[in-house]
């Protein structure tokens, strides 16, 4: 994934007029089918990364699709980022945002489960916000409070979000004291475990929740990650992420730890891998 484009200030500004979708490749069969219709590599298969700008119904490609923004906006990095920003502004100007959407907040961008959310948070070097409530009513209230902060100027794009019905879903997280509430979590290097930075109980005031978010950001120490040492350490520690569907990228090696019989090493004692 081309991180330089997606952390560019101009592109972040332009992104506010888009619905930004970043899917986790090979984690959903339906999403993989959709992505395969948008871009397939030379192998004819879905590859690790896909990039495109789509119409609001998700059917029409508005730029050339590829593996990264660089495929649609080639050339020297800075100029390519400016080209992408300009194109995004031009595309956004073609669509009139619905009136009712202008006066309400977008929905909370939650990931489908804690396992994936923790990993994505580690990949992004961002803290994870987990809202935990047993009843639908309590969850609805909690989500509304979290959502107001998620889209606020101070916090937009600075957290990953997930919700859970029970604190037991946070079993890989150290420091969970409350059964319900909002937990801000620092993921570990490999996004398989985490520790609580701040936590507030159900019924927290919006002001206290905001303070909890701000305190968590101040406490969180993002890591500087380099692919080679990260992977080398991961191999030593026997980290083994299992995707939900098979990886079809021809550049990806066969899944580590699978014997010819298809057994995984992740079942071994001390392994950090495995399904949730």
């Amino acid at each position: 994934m081309d991180r330089s484009f997606l952390s560019d200030k101009g592109i972040i500004r332009a992104s506010r007029e888009f619905v930004c979708a970043r899917l986790a490749t090979y984690e959903s069969k339906e999403e993989a089918e959709y992505l395969s219709r948008i871009f397939r590599g030379r192998s004819g298969q879905l590859e690790n990364t896909v990039f495109c700008i789509m119409s609001p119904d998700g059917k029409d490609k508005l730029v050339r699709s590829g593996r990264s923004p660089g495929w649609s906006f080639p050339g020297e990095e800075e100029q390519a980022a400016r080209d992408m920003e300009k194109k995004m502004d031009e595309i956004a100007s073609r669509y009139v945002v619905k009136k009712e959407a202008r006066s309400s907040l977008p929905a909370l961008p939650v990931l489908p489960n804690v396992r994936l959310a923790l990993n994505v948070a580690a990949c992004d070097n961002l803290p994870l916000v987990a809202a935990v409530a047993r009843s639908k009513g309590a969850m609805q209230k909690l989500r509304k409070q979290v959502n107001e902060l998620a889209w606020s100027k101070a916090f937009i794009g600075r957290f990953i979000f997930v919700d859970a019905e029970a604190a037991s879903e946070l079993e890989k997280i150290k420091g969970v004291k409350n059964q319900e509430g909002v937990f801000v979590i620092a993921p570990d290097t490999f996004g398989q475990e985490g520790k609580v930075l701040t936590q507030v109980k159900l019924g927290v005031s919006s002001k206290d929740l905001e303070e909890s978010f701000a305190r968590a950001l101040a406490l969180y120490e993002p890591e500087r990650k380099e692919t080679l040492p990260h992977n080398a350490l991961g191999r030593i520690l026997d980290v083994n992420w299992k995707t939900q569907i098979p990886v079809t990228d021809p550049g990806a090696p066969a899944r580590r730890g699978r014997s010819e019989e298809g057994r995984s090493r992740s079942g071994r004692r001390g392994s950090r891998g495995g399904r949730p």
Binding site: V19, A21, S55, P56, V97, T243, A252
Partner: peptide, 14 residues
């Protein structure tokens, strides 16, 4: 809901 276009990215988190 909004009528906004979609900036679409997919990446493997590993």
């Amino acid at each position: 809901r909004t009528g906004k276009p979609i900036l679409l990215v997919s990446a493997a988190p590993h």
